[in-house]
Structure formats: structure tokens, C-alpha cells
């Protein structure tokens, strides 16, 4: 079996002695063309892995920033099939950057797990994070993914017990997404030292790289988190650039603003190195 893009990317990042920058944008926010340019800007400015948000009407794990991004995307008429088409377009001239589809279970369930798995593989999606599909309920999805190289990426939090981590790790691949704070996306930041033990436990039990997210917005925060994590996830801060650019009446600046933030974050992670 060839090495997956996710594994290859973590190997590369590890060889460079730093943590990975995992960036998130909402597909179709405010439109698919801008999202395509934003994806390229992220890649060109040091994003190692890209999470592509799929909009959902009821995003119960998201804070206001990503909720509003999803509403903008839905208003523009974005469907899950459009998100896959966007991924496929990006994949045409990028064979290396892992793309993770992040969203909620219902739109995927609605297409059907088998059909979705085929379409996602065809689009070059490397993994999915469906936040409301717990390990107890995702066996059908995993069976559908078994024919393809798509990872089921799962979430752990500071409230996840050792016993639970084992359950979370079972069948998970790619990396583990460690939610740093109890709460929703875009909420307050965590002190890396407070979650060090939890992150180490997650890494030990799962044997997977652990990426830490929720509440990381700046290069400084990312660098601090790099001391304990294999990767740092930044989402709401990117999405906020979409909102502020739209409010300022300068939607054309969205890709460059997103690129600039990615450059700041990746620069900070390169400087910070690894513990």
C-alpha cells in the first residue's frame, strides 16, 4: 500500500523538525471561486494540511465565526457535491497537500456512505472529520472507506478518559484531532501545559500524530502549542478574514489575507521547532 498523503506530510514535517500547520476554511464562503483561490493561498504560504469545511444548517460544535461562514456558504447554494468538486479542482495541480473534509454527518449520510466514499476518493479527499458521528456509529462509513485511502479522523478532548481514548483510536487513522478547550470552535485558548498530559496520552494510546485545535489564532499561540503537538489547527481566525473582508467591501482581498495569516503561522511554527 502506498504511503498516504497524510502520513507522507507528517514524515516531511517531522524531518523538518517542526509541527504541522493544519488550516481550515469553509468551502463556498463566500463562493467557490474565492475558496479555490484561498486553498491555493494556504498551500503557497505554508499550510501543511488543509481542512475543507462542508456547510451544515445545524453546526452544533461550532462557535459564531464558523456558524456564520456556513450560513454564507449555504446562502451561496453550496452543496456537498460542490465541496467535493472544489477539492477535485485543487487536486488537479496539487498531489501532495492532504485535504480533510470537515463537517456533519447528515449531508454525507444523505448521499449514502458508499457513494460518498467513491466521490470523495475521486476528488482526492484524504480524510474526513464528521463531528457528530461518534466511533460507536461510524462503522458503515469505515466499511465504505475501506476500499479507498480515506482516513476517519476522530476527536478527543481534555474530558476524554484513557478508556475512551482507546475507543476513539480504534479504527481512526491519519491523525487525531485534540480539542484543546471544552467548548465550541473559536472559543478561548488553552494553556499548552494544561493539556500536555492529555495530548501525550492520546498520542501514546492511538499511535497517531496529534493535532491540537480550538482557540488557536496567532503565530505566538501556535508556536506555544507546537511544544506539545504534532500539528496545530487554526480555523476561526482564517474564517474571520472572510467576514472582515466582506464587511469592508473587499472580497477580492480574501485569498491574500488568508495567505498572509498562513505565512505568519507557518513562520512561527518553523521558528518554534519541536520539543
Amino acid at each position: 500500500m502506498p504511503t498516504s498523503r497524510i502520513t507522507a506530510r507528517f514524515d516531511k514535517v517531522r524531518a523538518e523538525g517542526r509541527a504541522a500547520l493544519v488550516s481550515y476554511i469553509m468551502a463556498g464562503d463566500p463562493d467557490l471561486e474565492t475558496s479555490y483561490k484561498a486553498l491555493c493561498a494556504l498551500r503557497d504560504n505554508g499550510a501543511d494540511i488543509i481542512e475543507l469545511g462542508a456547510p451544515f444548517t445545524d453546526p452544533m460544535a461550532d462557535g459564531p465565526a464558523i456558524q456564520r461562514a456556513g450560513q454564507r456558504s449555504l446562502k451561496a447554494g453550496t452543496k456537498l457535491t460542490d465541496v467535493l468538486a472544489l477539492a477535485k479542482r485543487f487536486r488537479e495541480d496539487d498531489q501532495d497537500t492532504p485535504l480533510i473534509l470537515m463537517g456533519y454527518a447528515n449531508p454525507v449520510f444523505h448521499i449514502g456512505y458508499e457513494a460518498f466514499a467513491d466521490a470523495a476518493a475521486d476528488a482526492g479527499i484524504d480524510g474526513t472529520i464528521l463531528v457528530d458521528l461518534p466511533p460507536e456509529e461510524d462503522h458503515e462509513l469505515r466499511e465504505a472507506y475501506a476500499h479507498h485511502e480515506i482516513s476517519v479522523i476522530r476527536l478527543a478532548t481534555p474530558t476524554t478518559t484513557e478508556k475512551r481514548i482507546a475507543k476513539v483510536a480504534e479504527g481512526a487513522s491519519g491523525f487525531l484531532y485534540y480539542v484543546a478547550v471544552a467548548g465550541v470552535t473559536g472559543s478561548g485558548s488553552a494553556d499548552p501545559e494544561d493539556i500536555r498530559e492529555g495530548v501525550e496520552r492520546a498520542r501514546r494510546v492511538s499511535g497517531l500524530p496529534v493535532c491540537v485545535g480550538f482557540g488557536v489564532r496567532t503565530g505566538e499561540q501556535a508556536a506555544a502549542m507546537a511544544a506539545i503537538a504534532d500539528g496545530v489547527v487554526v480555523g476561526s481566525a482564517f474564517v474571520d478574514h472572510v467576514r472582515t473582508s466582506l464587511e469592508a467591501g473587499t472580497p477580492d482581498e480574501i485569498p491574500s489575507k488568508i495567505g498572509a495569516l498562513a505565512a505568519e503561522l507557518s513562520g512561527a511554527l518553523a521558528d518554534a521547532g519541536r520539543n
Partner: peptide, 21 residues
């Protein structure tokens, strides 16, 4: 409605052809 997943359970839901509620 049609079968779907919302608020942590799988049941019949009012939803669009794209699985939006």
C-alpha cells in the same frame, strides 16, 4: 421527511435534497 442524523440521533427529518435541515 426522510431518514437522517441530527442532534445525536438517527431518525426522520425534514431536509433538503442535500441533507440540510
Amino acid at each position: 421527511g426522510k431518514p437522517g442524523i441530527l442532534h445525536g440521533n438517527k431518525t426522520y427529518l425534514l431536509q433538503t435534497e442535500d441533507g440540510q435541515i
